[in-house]
Amino acid sequence: MRKLAKYLLPLVTLPAFAQTPVSVHDAWARATAPGQTTGAVYMSLTSPAGDTLTGISSPDAGAAMLHKTTQMNGMSGMTDMDTLPLPAGTKITLAPQGMHVMLMDLKHPLVAGQNVEVDLTFAKSPGIHVKAPVQPISAAAPPA
């Protein structure tokens, strides 16, 4: 019994978030055009220990979800992604014409120079509140 406890104890006492948390870099969004009620947020995520992005919400939108724009043979479509695996040490990039956080029913237009906020939840790491700078409508990349 004592032997078993020796093995079990570290498991129980380990803090839930002992691992190095996920880091988010280069978050940005493109300004919306007049009348546009959807938006996209782009960013890079790295999990040193491996994790899964399990949920997205935004105080600036009625709904937020992870989408992937699929480009194949001249067709553009969108696929819902329920979760996004983050393999250990691998930088996963959300960028135009690929994966993006889709914001629906925006509560206000996305204006260049302001921020749009997104909350990310993960299977293991603590959640992250992301402030993504809004870039001009002509932007194609995060701010340098």
Binding site: A33, T37, A40, M78, H100, M102, S138, A139, A140
Partner: peptide, 22 residues
């Protein structure tokens, strides 16, 4: 051809065309 509720593909393409015209 596209639509205004398109969050990624349409604004990216139109923005690229705009940058090309520049």
């Amino acid at each position: 051809f596209g639509y205004t509720h398109c969050p990624d593909a349409c604004p990216t393409t139109l923005s690229d065309i705009g940058a090309a015209l520049d």
